[in-house]
């Protein structure tokens, strides 16, 4: 197998917990707890999971917007976690981010043209007039009229702002774009436009995406591979078709069963999970999902499941699949 563009190995990000939340001692919030995955060039890798499971923290840790506690992130042969200062900033030329909220991720005091041109200026990739040309082209490509280039962000709608955010992310011709819930703050009608834009741009520029989402419909439309997170851990990874056809982990099955059905009377029953997500300050021993799992076994309480991978690249961390890990 060829070298992946981005490989994340045993990534851990802990935050110090406030004393009031943690009792005493050196308690931490285990936001991301030992995650490994890789993304190839031109591929879309989706991270899904419910609120608070560590998706966004993972994304920010990869880009070093949050300092990871341990583990390794390799991007095109460079160890991201070891970079400092200038080297890190140079690296950011090739890995950009699209943010969830297009209302607060644009500087209200800069015009759209200045916002999109800034990465070019920062990385000294263009003179001012060249930057202007490229900015106009990028805005055009992202579906914004050049007449609006000198307006401030407040004059735009949410969907248009997200187009600006995407144009900014593409300014330096990055290889990897981390998109943190790129469409969840938008109206449904706008969501599909932005998703299509992202897909078109991926094809045109050969981008790799790490797509963070809680919307399984979005993920199915865009992703090549999918990783399901629960309580800071990756519980299942699979190619997207395989995942929707044959979800293995009980948590993944519950997630998929929660998608509203198109046809009334569709056969598959909804799996309703009981209880709450345990606190990441004090995760349960053994399998993190055992407190809510419908198939819980005695060993789940004490023993963490190993990740088993089959030939199709479908891996799952669950004791149910320990024995028959070689057939799918």
């Amino acid at each position: 197998m060829h070298d992946p563009m981005l490989s994340v190995e045993n990534l851990v990000t802990h935050f110090p917990a406030r004393a009031s939340e943690a009792g005493r001692g050196k308690a931490v919030i285990r936001a991301v707890d030992n995650i490994s995955f890789s993304v190839s060039a031109g591929e879309t890798y989706a991270l899904v999971g419910e609120s608070g499971c560590g998706k966004s923290t993972t994304a920010r840790s990869i880009l070093r917007l949050i300092e990871p506690t341990a583990g390794s992130v390799r991007f095109r042969g460079t160890e991201v976690t070891a970079c400092t200062g200038r080297a890190l900033r140079a690296l950011r030329r090739d890995m950009q981010m699209v943010f969830q909220d297009p209302y607060s991720s644009l500087n209200p005091r800069m015009t759209v043209a200045q916002i999109v041109a800034e990465p070019l200026i920062v990385h000294r990739m263009a003179s001012r007039s060249e930057a202007r040309d490229r900015t106009v082209k990028l805005l055009d490509r992202c579906g914004l009229d050049r007449r609006y280039a000198d307006r401030y962000p407040h004059a735009f709608s949410g969907g248009q702002r997200q187009r600006v955010v995407i144009a900014r992310a593409l300014a330096t011709s990055p290889k990897l774009v981390v998109a943190d819930e790129p469409v969840s703050a938008l109206d449904v009608s706008i969501q599909s436009q932005i998703m299509n834009l992202l897909c078109d741009l991926q094809e045109e520029f050969g981008l790799a995406y790490v797509l963070i989402s809680h919307d399984l419909a979005v993920v199915r439309h865009m992703a090549d591979r999918i990783g399901v997170m629960y309580l800071g851990k990756l519980v299942e990874q699979a190619p997207v078709d395989e995942f929707y056809r044959n979800p293995k982990h009980p948590y993944s099955r519950a997630l998929l069963s929660a998608i509203p059905k198109h046809r009334p009377g569709d056969a598959s029953a909804r799996i309703v999970l009981t209880g709450e997500v345990p606190s990441p300050t004090n995760p349960p021993a053994g399998c993190p999902f055992h407190t809510r799992c419908p198939h819980v076994m005695p060993r789940c309480h004490t023993e963490g499941p190993k990740t088993s991978t089959n030939a199709a690249g479908h891996s799952v961390a669950c004791h149910l699949f320990d024995e028959d890990s070689n057939d799918s």
Binding site: R92, R93, R168
Partner: peptide, 26 residues
């Protein structure tokens, strides 16, 4: 704390640039 400051870091801006070009004008 605001996302546009985080975005500026993500772009690769230096601290001084963030401070004087992104925060100070606000």
């Amino acid at each position: 704390q605001l996302p546009f400051v985080e975005a500026a870091r993500g772009i690769g801006c230096s601290h001084l640039r963030i401070l004087f070009l992104h925060i100070a004008p606000q």
